[in-house]
Write a protein that binds this DNA or RNA. Structure first.
Lengths: 144, 144
DNA sequence: ACTTTTTAGTTGTCATACTAATTATTAGTT
DNA sequence: AACTAATAATTAGTATGACAACTAAAAAGT
């Protein structure tokens, strides 16, 4: 039975993703970054003075709407983003970096790059490419 | 700067892992399995009439103690596992499948294998091996 | 034997994920 | 125009995940 192993692959994938995120989160905490890894992902998506609807942010970051709402809530409470009412669609907000958010993004960017690198050391250029290809194949296999 | 891309690799890994787990969870729900994917992982670890301490279960499943406690709570409430007081160490419980748990495990096993397979279709034998190797390298890179 | 340190498990808090249900608004249909 | 369907965002509920603090018991050190 070759199907048995897939359960353990799923476990391996889950475990590794958690470790990667957890490691980054620890470094975020010990560096007093004052944001979470997921909040960072949002900030980064709002770079270059972008005004994005939450719907678009959810798409970009691969998170669902309720999760987005709560992360934006937290970022607004920290004063790093702001909700701006959308002119043409009163159902929507656009989210935008505040001045403080822009500063935070610029400050942390090099440090985050550095932290992220740690997970991928000892991997060859080919490893990156293969991993990317395989993960995308898996993702597409489950596309609804 | 080659360091930039690592942030997006981390994102890709996280996104894929969530998709794999989410897909399985949806199939669990639509099949009325009445357990979550994480609870399944515990049941499977208790196969073959094993009595495991929560500490050992945590180790095997890669979860921390509080998470384990809560998952076991739920499994016990569903009547699928039971806590047995440890004879030599009164701090510990051993966790064990009930009769109902054994039945559940046997019933779901082939279906879970089938569900899990879906994510990995179109991947070659070589892909599996590479993925496994790369994920393990990443995991070890972050070993404390 | 007594004290200190470790260890197993629990509880509490916060953040993330997923689902379902709700509200307000827009788009589509007749 | 009126009615219906679809959409953006929120809220509520449950589960997982990480961390800290706590209890009880065992192990180690003196």
């Amino acid at each position: 039975m070759t199907t048995k192993k897939f359960d353990s692959y799923s476990y391996l994938l889950d475990r590794t993703a958690r470790r990667v995120k957890g490691y980054a989160q620890q470094r975020f905490a010990s560096g007093n970054f004052d944001i979470t890894v997921d909040q960072w992902l949002i900030l980064k998506s709002l770079d270059n003075d972008r005004y994005l609807k939450q719907k678009e942010l959810a798409e970009i970051t691969g998170k669902d709407n309720p999760t987005l709402t709560r992360i934006i809530d937290l970022l607004c409470k920290k004063g790093l983003t702001e909700r701006v009412t959308h002119k043409e669609d009163r159902r929507s907000f656009t989210v935008h970096l505040t001045a403080a958010g822009t500063v935070k993004l610029a400050e942390l960017s090099p440090q985050v790059d550095d932290i992220r690198m740690k997970a991928w050391q000892n991997l060859t250029e080919q490893d990156y490419e293969q991993l990317k290809t395989i993960l995308n194949k898996i993702y597409q296999n489950l596309e609804s």
